[in-house]
Design a protein around this nucleic acid. Structure first.
Length: 729
RNA sequence: GCCAGCGUAGCUUCAAUCGGCAGAGCACCGCAUUCGUAAUGCGGGGGUUGCGGGUUCGACUCCCGCCGCUGGCUCCA
């Protein structure tokens, strides 16, 4: 007999090998029909799987999942991925299956096949899927030993699955499979009882993806889709996607003249148009004032620096591929650079090539006296590198920290001066991969609201706590409350990190401690740390759900070491300071990009490029409008007049479409009374009021940095999806 | 960087039949209108159809190469 404990605590008894479905039937026929899957403890399992197959616990803690449970939606979607894979295999030859997990709001499946899939194929695939769902066949689980499993996948000509059993699943003795009709797939599950539960689905996009995420590996074709328990839910989701696209900062940025990226200037290089620049200046002023209040000291550093500076910091060797190449003062600089590169490469150089390089260097005016072609590679490299060091090479600044470290070193430091907080809106350049560039969110030239705090070990916690608090304050001031904090830790199995084991442990535990005390909810992510230290990253989603890192706080024991930073302690001995890198906005580009999407282009009063537009009813009141414009501008508002010979309705419409927070209609009546008829972008006509009263109201909204809703519209609520994913092996 | 799709006027609003004279709307400019809370009327300018090559009597349309954009992957100090 099996003892099963239901969520309300009651215990029911069932025969051995009873399933969740059996339990549901014991409770009621309607429930049995509604059951999609079940939870045994934290594990989601098939409704049809014997409970004693999953656990030896007694009583067995069981929760039945129906379509009202978010976990059930994940199960549904994973099953839909199988249905899609089955349809694709029916329609195309030689399909190898890779992985097909559930993701946020949907699923995907990766395929390896000759035929290039495109959205044009979706109709046929969806029709085949509809047929499969109509047939309503069940998903049947079975389990095989390694040898049988390998044999089965070989028979099915599923080479990727064979590889996966041999590598990723090398430790597994038993492997789970699911069969639905002719379709059999290696899969951990769970699945819905049968395909008829899928009431709504849609394929959304197709894209490339690497097998097991390895860029050197095979490139697969990934088809994305979504699935729901009802067409109504799906329509709501599709509608939400559509709405989100209307917020795209790339579209709004162009439409409202906020910024521009043009091929003439270069990919990923942002031109801040006056309106966008206005928003940025307001944000920078806001933060600068806040930082001055909190004991930061402004500094400035140049846009380029000697390559050696970044060699010392470690940035140059580590990020070489994603930096703009060095600037060489000597003509032969690039040649020598490439020479070193070839010498270090696996292929090396033939003696003939070396002779040619030496000749070419001579032509370019470079004598490399110590270079002996017959000596070993190390000596030849040393000769070339010596030449490099003797000749100036500069890097377009990829980071501000080495410069700030130099500012710390500019004079002897005492513990009495710590913490030293150096701030700079520093513009840096990084050669991001072409495929990564994305509007303002991923660019090649960006300005960080950077600062570096140099402090003693004892001050780390306090300083870290302050920066976390500052970041929260900044984000909340602009109404960004929907962010996630990620504690980015090192990957214990990787060797890309620098610094001692001891310092890493210290840094990671300090970060974790402060985050825990802060009350912020955060999740740890192994392998996400910077090469020099752990980070607390503030992540936000863009309009189509992609996550971006905005603010960041990073602990660094490494750079002080590399730059040999020291201060005199109270014991009159030299000590090494700790560095904290922090940027509440992250970069001005990304932050403004996210804000555009967050507000759908309708900035709150305190950030709006244009706050008020004055609309004279006719030319008769133009002078009055100009007079008010002068007064309001003097009071610190950003105001313009619409003096066109158009009707007021047209002027209102344009101002509405330009998302200007307030309009003021000015006719003879207002001019007579020294008044204005205020119109709110969201609430409409507020009626006439004395000029002074209106001015106070407007200034108040600026001073309070009031955040208002974007529009008069209720958000459609969607059923939440669990953040998990990956039901596949 | 990789895979796929897409590039027509300032516009992520788009048309152009089978390969047969590149055309609208919005925006812009000019003139008239002097108006009370989301579009006044009339007129005008604006194009090497992303770039380069090819096929053809003839290419926005078909083919090849490049560039860019979009989605995703990889990367992200």
């Amino acid at each position: 007999m099996l003892q099963v404990q239901l969520p309300d605590g009651t215990i029911v008894e069932h025969a051995a090998h009873a399933t969740a479905l059996d339990v549901a039937e014991g409770i009621g026929a309607r429930l049995a029909k509604a059951v999609v899957a079940a939870k045994v403890g934290d594990l989601t399992v098939d409704a049809m799987r014997p409970l004693d197959d999953v656990t030896s616990q007694s009583p067995i803690p069981l929760r039945l999942l129906t379509e009202r449970d978010t976990e059930a939606l994940d199960v549904l979607r994973h099953s839909c991925a199988h249905v899609m894979a089955r349809a694709v295999m029916r329609l195309f030859e030689g399909v190898s299956l890779a992985f097909g997990p559930t993701i946020n709001n949907g699923f995907y499946y990766d395929f390896d096949l000759k035929q290039k899939l495109s959205v044009d194929d979706f109709e046929a695939i969806e029709a085949e899927m509809a047929k499969i769902i109509q047939e309503g066949e069940s998903f049947d689980r079975f389990s095989l030993g390694r040898d049988e499993a390998l044999q089965l996948c070989t028979d099915l000509k599923q080479s990727l699955k064979v590889e996966h059993i041999q590598t990723g699943l090398a430790e597994h003795e038993q492997l789970g499979f699911y069969r639905q009709g002719e379709f059999v797939d290696l899969c951990r599950g769970p699945h819905i009882p049968d395909a008829s539960k899928i009431k709504a689905f849609k394929l959304l996009s197709v894209a490339g993806a690497y097998w097991k995420g390895d860029a050197k590996g095979k490139q697969l074709q990934r088809v994305y889709g979504t699935a729901w328990f009802s067409p109504k839910d799906q329509n709501a989701y599709l509608e939400q996607l559509e709405q989100a696209r209307l917020r795209d900062h790339r579209v709004l940025g162009k439409k409202h003249g906020l910024y521009q990226i043009s091929q003439e200037v270069g990919g990923g290089l942002c031109l801040w148009l006056p309106k966008g620049a206005r928003v940025r200046v307001l944000l920078e002023d806001f933060l600068r004032q806040e930082l001055l209040r909190r004991g930061y000291e402004p500094v400035y550093s140049p846009h380029i620096g000697r390559v050696e500076l970044y060699e010392t910091s470690g940035h140059f060797p580590y990020y070489r591929d994603s930096q703009f190449p060095p600037l060489f003062v000597e003509q032969a600089g690039g040649l020598v650079d490439g020479w070193i590169d070839r010498l270090q490469s696996a292929d090396g150089l033939t003696s003939e090539q070396e002779r040619q390089l030496s000749e070419a260097a001579k032509v370019l005016g470079a004598e490399i006296p110590d270079y002996q072609p017959e000596s070993d590679v190390e000596s030849r490299l040393a000769a070339l590198q010596a030449w490099q060091r003797a000749h100036e090479r500069y890097l377009v600044k990829p980071m501000n920290c080495p410069h700030h470290a130099q500012i710390f070193k500019a004079q002897p430091r005492s513990y009495k001066q710590l913490p030293l907080r150096l701030m700079e809106f520093g513009t840096v350049y990084r050669y991001e991969q072409t495929g990564e560039l994305n509007g303002m969110l991923r660019v090649r030239g960006l300005t960080q609201d950077d600062a570096h705090i140099f402090c003693t070990q004892d001050q780390v916690e306090e300083e870290f706590r302050n920066t976390i608090e500052l970041t929260r304050f900044v984000l909340e001031s602009v109404g960004l409350s929907d962010y996630q904090v990620q504690l980015s830790l090192r990957d214990p199995n990787s060797d890309k990190y620098v610094g001692s084991e001891e310092n890493w442990a210290k840094a990671e535990s300090a970060l974790r401690k402060v985050l825990e005390e802060s009350g912020l909810s955060f999740h740890a992510a192994e392998g996400e740390a910077a090469f020099y230290g752990p980070k607390a990253d503030f992540m936000v989603r863009d309009c189509i759900g992609r996550q971006w890192q905005l603010g960041t706080v990073q602990l660094d024991y490494n750079l002080p070491e590399r730059f040999q930073l020291e201060y005199v302690g109270s014991d009159n001995a030299m000590h090494r300071p700790v560095m904290i890198h922090r940027a509440p906005f992250g970069s001005m580009e990304r932050f403004v990009g996210v804000l555009i999407e967050h507000f759908a282009g309708a900035f709150p009063m305190w950030l709006a490029p244009e706050q008020v537009r004055l609309l004279p009813l006719s030319e008769k009141t133009n002078d009055y409008a100009l007079e008010l414009e002068k007064k309001m501008t003097a009071a610190g508002l950003r105001v313009t007049c619409d003096l066109r010979g158009a009707k007021v309705q047209a002027k209102i419409r344009d101002a509405q479409l330009e998302l200007i927070p307030y309009m003021a209609v000015l006719g003879p009546k207002e001019a007579e009374a020294g008044a204005l008829a205020l119109r709110d972008r969201i609430d409409g006509d507020l009626g006439a009021m004395p000029f002074e009263a209106a001015l106070e109201k407007l200034l108040d909204e600026v001073r309070n940095r009031t955040i208002r809703q974007v529009a008069k519209r209720e958000q459609t609520e969607l059923p939440e999806t669990a953040e998990t994913g990956g039901h596949e092996y």
